[in-house]
């Protein structure tokens, strides 16, 4: 078996008496997109901070691309790109200056800032101060900065939080393009639609522990309930919505009876969302 891009073993971290990460273990294959899902305070950001060398694990170990995250921190950081949730750009500098600065710090030879800015849709505004950019433009620039060193691994912390659909789609396209080049992506989010759309596997994090880790499809099969949502017209002219489970023995008969006896207006199939599954497993929602 090929060496995993990320290998985490029994990682712990506490802030004082508060246990943030409670002995998590997982592997991520090269080129895989793993989505870390969980509500605020679940420990997602602490995991990212440990893996990216911002925090030193208090117990356990982890390696990225075969390098120990503590002993070889600077080597690890040379191979990764990070897009933070909160904007942290030099706003009094232009986009080109921001990217050039980081390219120099990564010691990237022959860096083409303009090419990268074109990719993230910021071509033409590269010389303006970043302070004049919209939130979506800043987030795209953050993404470009994460890609400056052509990293083997990307850590994206809520990369599309609060963005307009165009910026969101640009960032999704960049993530897909990166994975096609073999980049491993570690995506933390509480947007289950985004995680479902982009992730090869998702991990549910709750109170510092991984409570489920699998492909979105298998999680839905294992935990979710399929249903048929039917809207019928009532004799008095009103409407009523009914839901029929597709996983019961009498489902076929129920569907037959409904279509025979009622006037059907609309029919939709429904599958469990990741949010539903998270709620089923933890008893709490992702926004909580």
């Amino acid at each position: 078996m090929a060496q995993p891009a990320i290998s985490v073993n029994d990682l712990h971290y506490s802030y004082g008496d508060t246990l943030a990460v409670d002995g998590i273990s997982f592997d991520v294959a090269e080129g895989e997109v793993i989505g870390f899902l969980g509500p605020n305070g679940a420990g997602k950001s602490t995991v990212v901070k440990m893996l990216t060398g911002q925090l030193t694990p208090q117990k356990g170990s982890a390696s990225l691309l075969g390098m120990d995250i503590v002993k070889e921190r600077k080597r690890v950081q040379q191979e990764i790109g990070i897009a933070f949730e909160t904007t942290n750009l030099y706003e009094q500098m232009s986009a080109v200056e921001n990217l050039d600065l980081f390219a120099k710090l990564y010691k990237v030879p022959n860096f083409d800032a303009m090419g990268l800015l074109e990719k993230v849709g910021l071509g033409g505004r590269e010389k303006e101060h970043v302070a004049s950019y919209s939130k979506g433009m800043k987030q795209r620039l953050m993404m470009a900065r994460a890609l400056v060193s052509d990293p083997k691994m990307l850590f994206l912390d809520e990369p599309t939080d609060g963005l307009d659909p165009v910026s969101t789609e640009t960032i999704h396209a960049l993530i897909r393009a990166a994975t096609q080049n073999g980049t491993t992506v570690f995506l933390t989010t509480h947007d289950m639609v985004e995680a479902d759309k982009l992730s090869d596997r998702v991990a549910f994090l709750n109170q510092g522990k991984i409570v489920a880790l699998d492909t979105p499809a298998r999680l839905k099969l294992s935990f979710g309930m399929r249903a048929l949502k039917v809207e019928i017209e009532l004799p008095d002219g009103g409407t009523e919505a009914r839901e029929l489970s597709l996983d019961l023995d009498q489902t076929a008969q129920d569907v037959f009876d409904l279509f025979k006896n009622e006037r059907i207006l609309t029919v939709h199939s429904e599958e469990a969302t990741l949010e539903d599954i998270f709620f089923d497993i933890t008893g709490r929602g992702l926004q909580g």
Binding site: Q54, Q77, F84, T86, N88, Y90, L105, Y106, R145
Partner: peptide, 14 residues
């Protein structure tokens, strides 16, 4: 305050 210090120290810059 602007968190650029974190951005710098997550590169190979110490």
């Amino acid at each position: 305050e602007k968190r650029t210090l974190v951005a710098l120290t997550t590169t190979p810059t110490s």
